[in-house]
């Protein structure tokens, strides 16, 4: 008799266990995902920088940039991104970096915020790769105030330094929006 009752009970508890395992598996997957997020790496002022790929929508060759009259130097110009007029920014001065000429390897990384899409001029895009961000070191103190604002820290990958850009903060920086009346 008891044997007849048990199966139902067992099935339910098995289902419960399966559900628990499933959820646990999910949260583990999420945690693992956070540790192994993918980053786009690129070169600015001769140094390697990176930010999370989720912010980047595409990487394109540098098209013709049309200068906008009398705006901050950071706005390098506008270009046609499939019919949408989009700004290209040279953020190197903002990060206190030198500005070597953008050569044939130069690329624009298109990033999207809630308010607008914009392009970041880079000297070269290296690729997309997972980075061990657990090893992120705090920004070196010799870096000035403004650059430190937008750099979360650096990673030392077998002697190679990768600076982690705080792209979300950069996209909200007032400096990148034209807000004036000459």
């Amino acid at each position: 008799m008891t044997a007849e009752k048990k199966p139902g009970y067992d099935i339910r508890s098995i289902l419960e266990e399966m559900k628990d395992e499933y959820w646990q598996g999910l949260s583990e997957a999420e945690e693992a995902g956070e540790e192994q997020q993918e980053y786009i790496t690129f070169v600015l002022g001769g140094e390697t920088f990176a930010f999370e790929t989720v912010y980047a929508t595409e990487v394109i060759r540098v098209p013709k940039l049309v200068k906008i009259p009398r705006v901050q130097e950071l706005i390098a110009g506008v270009f046609n991104l499939r019919g949408e007029i989009t700004a290209a920014m040279d953020i190197r001065p903002l990060l206190g970096l030198p500005q070597p000429a953008i050569s044939a390897t130069g690329r624009i990384i298109v990033v999207k915020s809630e308010r607008f899409a914009t392009g970041i001029l880079t000297e070269k895009v290296e690729g997309v790769t997972p980075l061990p961000v657990n090893g992120l070191e705090p920004v070196i103190t010799s870096l000035g105030g403004a650059p430190r604002e937008y750099i979360r820290g650096q990673l030392n990958l077998d002697g190679r330094l990768v600076m982690m850009l705080d792209i979300a903060k950069l996209m909200n920086a007032p400096e990148i929006v034209v807000e004036h009346n000459p």
Binding site: P69, R70, V71, G83, E84, I85, T86, V177, V178
Partner: peptide
């Protein structure tokens, strides 16, 4: 006429592209 989007909303001399 295309507008310049939120980033360049307040540009002077230019109202679109």
């Amino acid at each position: 006429v295309k507008n310049l989007g939120n980033q360049l909303k307040n540009v002077t001399f230019v109202f679109g592209a």
